[in-house]
Design a binder for these strands. Structure first.
Lengths: 358, 358
DNA sequence: TTGTACGCGTTATCAG
DNA sequence: CTGATAACGCGTACAA
């Protein structure tokens, strides 16, 4: 029977058991369109009887009408959802894992712009990444990214912003901390204290955050006329295993060569700084009396009780907020802002000072 | 012209610029229905050519198809999304605001169960709450709730779980910390130290978290044969303004009356504990030598550097995880678990000891 | 076994 | 100023 078109009569209440615009319309004696118009604030500036308006509002109030968010979003063709996808697993290592600080800024800025957030849990690489498409756009963070999966999204024109520099993936927008300059500044401060030989301890991996720090370190070293160990030895050492290489003996050896300051980079594991602290202590030395120490970032939570390290602060909340701004710019205008680098504040701390004998 | 029905042709991509089932269908050479069937896991057990199935899956993968959450909700389906809605705005007061610790547990448990999270930002009251309907179910947290709005959701059968005890709203599932017992335990410890007169400083507001603590405090006081100030005076004082009432003079007066221990409750502002610490210091006293102090919860971040307060830990991550378990139980079985109270661990700390002269 | 024809509740576009 | 009417993207009886 093609005849019995259900004819969609407005009964009392929808399947969901709560009032829809159609019922408000019936009660107010107008069409559903008018209801939508009135309740929607009449954006298109159509002329309405003030009295009609009142009737509609009254009816809506009486019925306790509340718009259905799903329907609203469906019709608007946008979900008002921003995704947040973290590659470095967030849960095993808990709170301090450099994820929530970003989220503070992200949430604040998202709220200000009327977006809700989707936190994609489970950082399994690969196909899982496609899930982010349910959000209007997505923020990505983590030292390493599944480049190919992300590439697809970006090539499809999906609005994506990476938190942290990420130049390899052309076309991917990013916002990052200015590690180059911040690291250089730390070296300059050490130079100002009178140090002449400085060593950087970094992790053995080539994440941009690490290479940026190294670059800033080396540049400032050169500009300040400083050096690493004598004989033109490398001023940068990589530690592969958490503590391998960075032993009390190693510290003493460097010191005997004239190295008076040690710099470590911050990473999500905090391995370099931890190794350095342990080795220095093991060598019976203390900072800043015997050696100066600096950390390119913030200490891991379990070392937070120690004397505040000289170094710099990563403006995580700021970065998160900046990322949201860039993403929403991508969503509306189609183009991100030009200057994606956020400065890090120098932190004087208490682990660096003049070298012994100065 | 009633003839020119637009006939809804599937172009390349929807307004949203993202693939829909119709495109997957076109690519796979089947109808949209079949796509829905295959991608929906074929619940109704309809027979399908395995090969058709494969073609559809392949096409979906190729296009990076992801279902639209709004459309699914409108069609009364689920999204594998759990909502998190916080009443107490999270950002003004930043990270430590008792919100992220919960999130850690929530995220972990949600990931384990295959759900992503939607963080509903901005806690403006009223209709804003309805946004959560986009998620399959939602977690709520905060000292105070817009009861009527929540009531609607609950009455509609929307799966909701509140983090923190919330009995007023009948029918609302919740998980909470056992503040009653934890507070009682703190009093017992003080009694064991030899204290006979103890005072509780609490905020002037009737959130369940506060009344629970007070109840545990009073109960244990009675059971241990302890008292407040002499003459049957109230053992519980409320502080309205951050520091009003709790002054160095007040502390001295209580002490002169024989009160040897002061207990403060933790709240999101940390006002009670802060006021107490300040007043005790102002009175030139120190804990635990002159007076014993205890905190029913954790100190606010800015006081984290002080000596660790005797008291208890709120198992926030645990609570978050428990809430997710309850919520998913609600989603699948329809009934939450029976025991929604999570125990708090006692924290010995360093601010309580025997009263002077014992 | 696959496709047709709805409906979910809203917004938006037009004729009247 | 109002009222049909068509989307938005997906799920699903029912028909083929």
């Amino acid at each position: 029977m093609a005849e019995n078109r259900p004819q969609r009569v407005v009964t009392s209440t929808g399947r969901r058991g709560r009032p829809r615009q159609a019922e408000v319309a019936r009660l107010a004696g107008v069409s559903q369109t008018t209801v939508s118009l009135v309740l929607g604030g009449n954006k298109q500036g159509i002329a309405l009887h003030a009295e009609t308006r009142e009737r509609v509002l009254e009816a809506a109030r009486e019925l306790g009408y509340v718009p259905d968010p799903a329907a609203r979003r469906l019709a608007a063709a946008r979900n008002n959802l921003l995704g947040v996808f973290s590659f470095t697993g967030t849960f095993p290592t808990a709170v301090e894992h450099s994820y929530y600080p970003f989220l503070v800024g992200v949430e604040q800025e998202a709220a200000a712009r009327g977006f809700d957030l989707v936190l994609f849990t489970g950082s399994s690489p690969g196909g899982a990444l496609e899930r982010v498409r349910l959000a209007d756009g997505c923020l990505f963070l983590g030292r390493h990214v599944p480049a190919d999966a992300l590439r697809r999204l970006v090539d499809d024109g999906y609005p994506a912003v990476h938190i942290g520099r990420r130049d390899e993936l052309s076309g991917l927008a990013w916002v990052g901390a200015d590690y180059v300059d911040a690291s250089a500044e730390v070296v300059r401060r050490l130079a100002a204290f009178g140090h002449r030989r400085v060593v950087l301890v970094r992790e053995d991996d080539d994440a941009p955050a690490s290479t940026d720090r190294e670059r800033g370190f080396r540049t400032a070293l050169a500009e300040a006329g400083l050096a690493g160990p004598p004989g033109g030895a490398e001023p940068v050492v990589r530690v592969a295993e958490p503590a391998s290489g960075i032993t009390p003996e190693w510290v003493r050896a460097r010191r005997d060569e004239g190295v008076t300051a040690f710099v470590a980079e911050e990473t999500d594991t905090g391995a370099a700084w931890r190794a350095l602290l342990t080795a220095v202590e093991g060598a019976g030395l203390s900072a800043p009396a015997d050696v100066s120490l600096a950390l390119l970032g913030s200490p891991p939570a379990d070392l937070a009780g120690r004397p505040e390290p000289t170094g710099f602060e990563i403006p995580r909340a700021e970065l998160g907020a900046a990322a949201v701004r860039t993403l929403t710019a991508l969503l509306t205008e189609g183009e991100p802002d030009a200057r994606p680098l956020v400065a890090c504040a120098f932190r004087a701390g208490r682990t660096a000072g003049p070298p012994p004998g100065m």
